[in-house]
Design a protein around this nucleic acid. Sequence first.
DNA 1: TCTCTGAATAGATGTTTGTCTATACAGTGA
DNA 2: TCACTGTATAGACAAACATCTATTCAGAGA
Lengths: 116, 116
Amino acid sequence: MLPAPACCTPLSREPLGEDDAKTLAGMFKALSDPVRLRLLSLIASHEGGEACVCDLAGPFDVTQPTISHHLRVLREAGLIDCERRGTWVYYWVLPTALERLGSLLSTDGLVAAGPR
Amino acid sequence: MLPAPACCTPLSREPLGEDDAKTLAGMFKALSDPVRLRLLSLIASHEGGEACVCDLAGPFDVTQPTISHHLRVLREAGLIDCERRGTWVYYWVLPTALERLGSLLSTDGLVAAGPR
DNA sequence: TCTCTGAATAGATGTTTGTCTATACAGTGA
DNA sequence: TCACTGTATAGACAAACATCTATTCAGAGA
């Protein structure tokens, strides 16, 4: 049987290799800031599955360059992508990236443990 | 209909609140380091679902206090728990925490978007 | 009680990160 | 071409972080 690709193997299946751990930790790092998590959620839950930056800045207490910085971090982590359409820039979520992280966290086959 | 609890609502269902975002970002931050991700994977995939610290330190290039520090971060994030049994301390994964993060990343109902 | 081993804590240090202000870049429309 | 608006980049700075060495704590066994 072929080993499952790193993209879809749960953490609990086999120890993560050094390289995979580095890549995946980078993606989780992008999710490790409250502003970024809310940005991602705003984009994902926006009608049509995408949102203009002008829709995103509103709910936050931080400046526009800070929002722009966080969007770049999410984009460089491969979680979202964007496109300019005239004056505005639209962002959308890349579902396969979320799914990759989600399947990593799967607890299928995880043996329950705890105090003896 | 009652609103789904924050623990199980996908990011794409509705915008994440400020407080939930803070909590969840903290959990993702615990996953945002390659050593911690490998530690978690090592614990989860260890036979019996738990591992002694002495089983964990081996594969890493960092010192014992650093491993201890990372285990503490994972524990304080609610991802693992531990117990001393005689000389040794055993760690195990808390599956509900992983499941909470996993369901947050679910793409069910996410509208595909992209370049026009 | 003494010593040995496994694990955690304390404190120091260089690096990374989140945020800001100031500025530049990209389109639109007059 | 000029002015205006939306977005990104540059650079600075304080706070958070990963790692180390040195030390302490907790149990086991003689």
